[in-house]
Amino acid sequence: MWFLWAVIDRLGPSGRRTGDGLLDEAALERIARGDHDALAELYDRHARPVYSLALRILQNPSDAEDIVQEVFSQAWREAARYDRLRGAVAAWLLTLARSRAIDRLRARRARPENAADHRAVVNVADLGLPPDLQVLSSEQIACVRAALGELPVLQRVAIELAYYEGLTHVEIAARLEQPLGTVKTRIRLALIKLRDALAGAV
């Protein structure tokens, strides 16, 4: 049959959605219809990781709470436009949180009175993960966290500067006084290790 020639092997199974993911999608549909309880439900499932990410980036509880408020307000407004092709709801909320937090961080950096706010990002010792980390439910996340801790220091710093500090690779190279190519290579190697850790945890 003609359409059977589609001998395509390249496409794996599309992403499986977990029970939580389906609950989230259902909650968003209800939010789109103006259901406040659904927003409370979504908040109870995700406020903690959203807050924790914002706190890691902004290092200030009050700023982090502002971000949480902005993220859930945006989820409320845009629930109807949420497209599940874009990925899981949890990932969407965290992406919103990260970009809002990074925006705020950049604005803070741009203000001269806070020029001293480069914090300890170059202090490598400071970047060690606290030993009393609460482990999230997902085994994969624990694995990535462990793998992050095992990365060579400069690889880990490069990743953290990019993801949690919102620096571009050009800025990272300047900050670490490393050639651009070296920084790119380090980031690539680090991501591949983290991805392998993630795959190993399945």
Partner: peptide, 25 residues
């Protein structure tokens, strides 16, 4: 991108204040 997602979760977890929930809702 799955790694980026995991990095978002890989931060120390802490609880926002209970007042925030009421404020957001």
């Amino acid at each position: 991108s799955s790694v980026a997602g995991a990095l978002a979760h890989a931060v120390p977890q802490s609880e926002p204040s209970p007042a925030l929930r009421a404020r957001v809702l």
